[in-house]
């Protein structure tokens, strides 16, 4: 597994964890109407995010074969195609975030301003996810790489 694949797996892992955290939050605070205590965020959320970051840094820094180049011409091509897929996903996401609220809230509907960073964050996650999955699909095509 080379650096590009490692990064892609890392991003997929992080986004999955973020998604799991969001689902957990929605189920507990909105579904079960249970307000999580302040200590939860203080003693669990922050150390957990630091732990994940630490794992990620060590995961990305380990390079088992020092003689191997970090990226070659095929990696560049794979990244370019993944970037194109991510760019298309941005256009779709921007279109979706512009049109879907109109259908849900109506033309005169309003959204709290605090939703904007959340929407931006979701779009960022989506782009990163699409990019990473596109990278992994291209490397894994044929499922023989690395054997």
């Amino acid at each position: 597994m080379n650096m590009t694949q490692k990064r892609a797996w890392y991003h997929v892992g992080i986004i999955s964890l973020v998604l799991a955290a969001v689902v957990f939050y929605l189920i507990v605070e909105i579904g079960l109407k249970y307000k999580l205590p302040e200590s939860f965020w203080k003693y669990i959320w922050f150390p957990a995010s630091m732990f994940i970051t630490g794992i990620g840094i060590s995961f990305l820094c380990i390079k088992y074969n020092t003689g191997e180049p970090w990226a070659d011409e095929r990696d560049k091509l794979i990244k370019l195609r993944a970037m194109l897929a991510a760019f298309i996903s941005v256009i779709i996401a921007l279109f979706g975030t512009s049109v879907i609220p109109i259908y849900i809230l109506g033309r005169d509907g309003m959204l709290p301003v605090s939703f904007l960073p959340k929407i931006n964050f979701c779009v960022l996650c989506l782009v990163l996810f699409v990019y990473s999955v596109a990278v992994l699909i291209q490397y894994g095509r044929g499922a023989k790489d690395g054997k």
Partner: peptide, 14 residues
């Protein structure tokens, strides 16, 4: 000067 994966992919015609 490439990765082993590129050699594998080239060799297999992918």
């Amino acid at each position: 000067g490439v990765t082993r994966q590129t050699i594998i992919a080239t060799e297999s015609g992918r």
